[in-house]
Write a protein that binds this DNA or RNA. Structure first.
Lengths: 340, 340
DNA sequence: TTGAAAGCGTTACCAT
DNA sequence: ATGGTAACGCTTTCAA
């Protein structure tokens, strides 16, 4: 714009060779200077010339070329399913990315778009990530883990309901949440317990596990479970509340606090007394749940933090030989308030 | 494990040369076969041999090598600030990533970690992204845009409160939200209006703009504005409510629905009548706001969707010559309910 | 102290 | 129809 480039037909990306030429040195020297190589001593004058030249040209090294040469990357691949995650999950993800960045990794988010299991893993492996952190990816198989490792991944970490052979498995047992909630209700004498299942697509994975937990909790207790599909909107909640008394339920565990709040309000509008006639339990322990009247009983979830997971990734990368272990990383406990 | 590799000291990543050797052909042929090159005809027998060999070795092409050779990438860089974004923002981000993936881009999330403005842009440019979508990055300067473009970025898109010279600027005017909310209050006869400012770090950017909008709304109306710092926890809300009557306010605009709900509950617990004594307005139009009593008046925000933004990115990438324009992409309108 | 050259894995042009 | 070869941009060993 202001200064016409020497002769380039158009703007083209400057390379280290361009810098070398401008500074009147070799490409090797440029590399030494710009990477502060400690093994060689370069005269201060040369260093300065090189820096000047780089600055003038707006030279920026090419990450792909660098890692091609280096034979490894600092890429952490984060295959993410496209489910409408709750605020807790979102925050976790955000925190994880942050912490990984802080440890100088490049985070690549890679939704596996309807690719068949094997295809998706191939796509991931192309990036030669140093680590893969699969968050509840159903598609991660032992073979997939093998392929990734052979493609140079030092660590494959799975955060999922079940362990994955060959990967560092953080088993996150969603069923504990449903179990917790329903056990609480049973202990308080409830016998006919509804379980809200979100109709929103993508949530089935979580919902089913929580439902399983609920089932386990009533097993042999004489209490029964009733699945209640519900969409996250007022109409759906109103409709459910309208037929509430025909269901003969004395309690409901509502997947999470959002659905619980939605349903509780609808029930109250319908004249259902809470917790007298029906007890309500949510999950996630959101602040908002404490603002309703009655205050919402909920299941507090203790999860590994993004920070902690990032550290785990880093450790696994630096000690690739360590045996991939299996850990349970979720705790759940009922927080009793007023709605139950 | 089960089969001992020919002679490799350890598992090493197979390359196309390995595939060529095993199939008894040249690297070029391997490339042709695996990329379904249409310009050359390869015998079916050879194709088969190559595919077999690739399969057997578990060959996966190396993305870095490929893009080095190709001279360009399909990387979209998403520099993300580390602010605790609300559910709306999170969902937007999620949607954007998804849509970009669907358009076959590789999404790299890159929190600019305390790197000085220039440094951060350098780090981004190293990845040679084909596009950069800066979401409210304060650090994106016209020089930065220039550097990115010179590094091969076909599109630099900024989603921020102000336009950025040289970039496709989507101006997202946060002040409209505060203006909307407070105008509504003024029109309904309120004269002493509190404005809640979240104490949470990282939210200042938004909060200040919304505050500015509030200020504009009262200008020349005879009404006044009172800043009210508030943390997102019950103690803070209770404390603020306790001294409410000493403030002499007849209305409050509470940044967003979360803060509004928190404060409204605290005020009710303090015996403040809403909306009689104090009107409350939030923002974001969350479903939860409709569940409180009185129902929360709020500012509904019309934003560009992630999907739309992704399409815009794609278009900009494919027509790099198009003049980078400036568009206002946020609308705001008050949704009057019962709390005002 | 600096430079020449090899090589990382791919693809595309040009021969055969 | 297939293979040799050069080139993408960078780092690093070896030589001068």
């Amino acid at each position: 714009m202001s200064q016409t480039p020497k002769k380039s037909a158009e703007r083209s990306v400057p390379t280290s060779a361009d810098v070398a030429r401008l500074a009147g040195v070799s490409r090797a020297t440029v590399s030494y200077v710009l990477n502060n190589a400690s093994s060689v001593r370069i005269s201060e004058a040369t260093r300065h010339r090189v820096r000047e030249a780089a600055e003038e040209l707006g030279y920026v090294p090419h990450a792909a070329a660098r890692s091609l040469r280096a034979g490894h990357t600092r890429t952490v691949l984060l295959p993410t399913a496209a489910f409408p995650a709750g605020p807790l999950h979102q925050q976790f993800l955000q925190e994880l990315q942050w912490a990984l960045r802080r440890l100088d990794y490049t985070v690549v988010q890679h939704g596996s778009l309807g690719l068949a299991g094997g295809e998706a893993v191939r796509a991931w492996a192309e990036l030669r990530p140093v680590a893969v952190v699969a968050l509840g990816e159903a598609g991660l198989t032992p073979q997939g883990v093998g392929l990734l490792r052979r493609s140079g991944a030092k660590a494959v970490i799975s955060l999922a309901p079940r362990r994955v052979e060959g990967a560092h498995s953080l088993v996150i047992d969603q069923s504990a949440i449903g179990r917790c909630a329903v056990t609480h209700l049973v202990e308080r004498g409830r016998r006919a317990i509804g379980v809200v299942l979100p109709r929103e697509p993508g949530l089935e994975m979580f919902a089913e596990h929580r439902m399983d937990g609920a089932r386990q909790a009533v097993a042999g207790s004489g209490a029964r479970i009733e699945p209640l599909p519900l969409s996250y909107d007022e109409e759906s909640a109103t409709a459910l509340a309208a037929r509430w008394r025909t269901l003969g339920l004395d309690a409901v565990y509502a997947y999470n606090d959002d659905y619980a709040m939605l349903l509780m309000r609808a029930l109250q509008d319908e004249g259902v007394d809470i917790p007298g006639e029906t007890a309500v339990v949510g999950a996630d322990d959101l602040l908002l749940g404490r603002l309703l009247r009655p205050r919402l009983t909920t299941v507090h979830i203790d999860m590994i933090t993004g920070q902690q997971l990032a550290e785990l990734v880093d450790r696994a990368v630096r000690e690739p030989e360590a045996e991939p272990g299996t850990h349970r990383v979720m705790g759940a406990r009922t927080v009793h308030r007023e709605s139950s």
